[in-house]
Nucleic acid binder design. Structure first.
Lengths: 188, 188
DNA sequence: TTTTTTATATACCTATCGGTATAATTCATT
DNA sequence: AATGAATTATACCGATAGGTATATAAAAAA
């Protein structure tokens, strides 16, 4: 990607993270980059095109990071703990992206940004669901709850990502008291 | 409150819930009520005044509903289950309000609507924290975790409220698998 | 070197935003 | 009936929104 396109994308992400997706205009983005509107429209076509690229890149990086984890092999608690660490590693690496991605989490279905972001969150949910489905081979009692478990797991990650972003980090001592009840829930 | 003021408030809530707080203009609100802008400004002073009244009324009603629960008396799991039911009773009674209140949950701290809504969510968190603090009398092992537990409990409610609003309700059969791990977490 | 493609700027478009000065209307009180 | 307050409408404000027609500059290809 060309340098100015990246600068625009980076600055847009920064501003969106700072004040919200709908509170930042195109004008301000290009001004902060010492560029003009036609340049942004040359690269991204429209405002939606800009946010679309932003979301796609961010979730691609998140998914790639999760992909680095070796395949699940029978020890689900350990696997999830690793995934937790992996997740928050990415949050720490690109906090602005998560601020933006989270900001649209509960937007109404008819909202433009929700329309753009939902597929990405859904893919994550699907990914988790597949994990829990695979795990039913070893944890048969989970059968029939894969969807619910994936949704709860995603909720846990989202909720504590919000906390991470507000407080600039997560006290490592809370990891255990957070994860333990969820892991317990897998077996009961 | 005067009739037209209530109509405006109700219509604003509906539109905000449908498309998001920042995607709806004053003009559209008043038009849908067959009124004009000066009328809205006569009653609410400004756009922020309108949303402020909206949030205040909604959270007042939520808190009032939670207040109907008798004081905690030593059986925390039962108390929380009741509170869960109470909460989702309110969600069902005023879904649009929760759509709006949730939509700003993860907005950046500098965002206007986040600024307006955060105090209300904080008050809820505070309320829950007090509950868990009281409960440490009977559940000493919770001591020192009151803040974390209140935050987790709030997160659980928010997450599943989102699900409720998307799907138009919550399968009562999921209540137990959701609550059980959290309640377990209280003791470990 | 000429031509073509890529990249950026100037200057403008229409629509809408939140908000208001002013006037008219409605309504209760006297 | 006259008065004064409460309520609503007409018509406007400046600012900014997203977006673009057109020209120009820079770089690559011929």
């Amino acid at each position: 990607m060309k340098e100015n396109a990246e600068r625009l994308l980076k600055e847009a992400e920064r501003l969106f993270a700072e004040r919200g997706l709908e509170a930042v205009g195109i004008q301000e983005i290009v001004e902060n980059c010492d560029l003009t509107k036609p340049t942004l429209y040359y690269y991204f076509g429209s405002r939606e095109g800009l946010t679309q690229v932003l979301f796609r890149q961010g979730f691609l990086r998140l998914n790639s990071a999760l992909d680095t984890q070796s395949v699940y092999e029978g020890d689900l608690p350990t696997y999830l703990k690793q995934q937790w660490k992996l997740w928050f590693g990415v949050v720490e690496a690109m906090p602005d992206f998560f601020r933006v991605a989270l900001s649209a989490l509960y937007l109404p279905p008819a909202n433009t940004h929700q329309v753009q972001l939902k597929p990405h969150w859904d893919r994550l949910h699907h990914r988790f669901e597949e994990l829990f489905t695979k795990a039913t081979v070893h944890y048969g009692n989970m059968r029939g709850r894969e969807h619910l478990l994936a949704f709860s797991w995603l909720g846990l990650l989202q909720h504590w990502t919000g906390a991470f972003l507000r407080e600039g980090g997560l006290d490592p001592r809370v990891e255990d008291p957070i994860l333990r009840p969820f892991l317990y829930g897998l077996f009961s």
